[in-house]
Simulated scan of single mutants.
Amino acid sequence: MNITQQIIASAQKTINIEQAAIANLSSLIDEEFAQAVQAIYSSKGRVVITGIGKSAIIAQKIVATLNSTGTPALFMHAADAIHGDLGSILIDDIVICISKSGTTPEIKALVPLIKKTENTLIAITSNKTSFLGNEADYVLHAFVKEEACPNNLAPTTSTTAQLVIGDAVAVALLDLRGFTEKDFAKYHPGGALGKRLYLTVQDICATHQNPAVTPDASIKEVIVEISKKRLGVTAVVLNGVIQGIITDGDLRRMLAKNDSLEGLTAQQIMSENPKTVNHTAMAIAAKDILEEHNISQLLVVKDGNYAGVVHIHDLIKEGIA
């Protein structure tokens, strides 16, 4: 076996081991899991998640997922907890402790302190009969047969299982809360993800001047309007209502067909029945229309009247297209 084959075989073995462990987790989801989720859902406090080593890193990811899906959570490192950070746990908080073995010294020191405060304790552990498993009010069984590490030492399969259990808890809570796309957008206002969920066509076209000419406008007036508004397009409008559209491409085709521009009007070269989008539509919907029809601009309407232009470059700038 050459080095390339060795690498591929090693990677495939890791994935297969972890895949089997994750598949087995489904059979471990039971009434106790449901009761733990219900306890979190009914709680007036936050979820405080703690762990040591690699489990602490997984805890931070689960905290981030809970916070972004409507369940207030915070991370508390197990080692720091016994040196002052225990004060971050409030009376109504629920504590989730993550540990593969459930017997590490830090966990053994921390758990009795949590029990004294009478906070509900949920364990995510591979060993239900461990110290942590026996002391917890609820145990979420993240059992793994073996680590993907060939020495069965480095946390690999076990941390993957912990992460999957955390996701299962977060999504179950999301379902119970009826968490919607609008809720998700509220917690993710930044970046392309948030913009896909809250940015509207009106938000985009409001940044532009609205290029428009009347049907009887001369070709010179059309060219000046398109050049002035810098969107490569103008609407042809009569009494606020869209009659057609003229793009840079329409002008080029017009020049190729006509030796003289004398007497030509906007109405004679415009494209009728242009694609439009309502001002309240989501920007992502505008992107879909542009892609479907392979065009660069959409005219925006509000209450049946012309309200502006949305350009594919606007969507690219916002990270949507």
Rank of each mutant, 00 (worst) to 15 (best):
A217M: 13
S101G: 06
I8E: 13
A192H: 01
S55M: 08
A78T: 09
E181Q: 09
V213D: 06
G84W: 07
G87Y: 10
L264P: 12
A21D: 06
N239T: 05
L66Q: 07
E272G: 14
E221C: 09
V237F: 12
H141F: 07
A286S: 04
P155M: 09
G51V: 15
S218M: 03
T69V: 08
T65S: 15
D216M: 07
H293S: 10
A39C: 13
D203Q: 04
A81T: 03
G263L: 11
P150M: 06
E18V: 11
Q297A: 12
Q162K: 08
D167V: 01
L74G: 03
K44C: 06
M282W: 03
L238I: 05
K61R: 09
A168R: 01
V301C: 14
V300R: 02
Q209P: 14
T14E: 10
S227G: 10
K54H: 07
T265F: 14
L299R: 01
G232Y: 04
A192L: 01
Y306E: 11
E31I: 15
I204P: 07
I242S: 09
L74H: 03
H77Q: 04
P150Q: 04
Q12H: 12
Q209A: 14
V310M: 08
R46D: 01
S227H: 09
N258I: 01
A286Q: 01
N67I: 00
S126Y: 04
G53T: 00
V144Q: 09
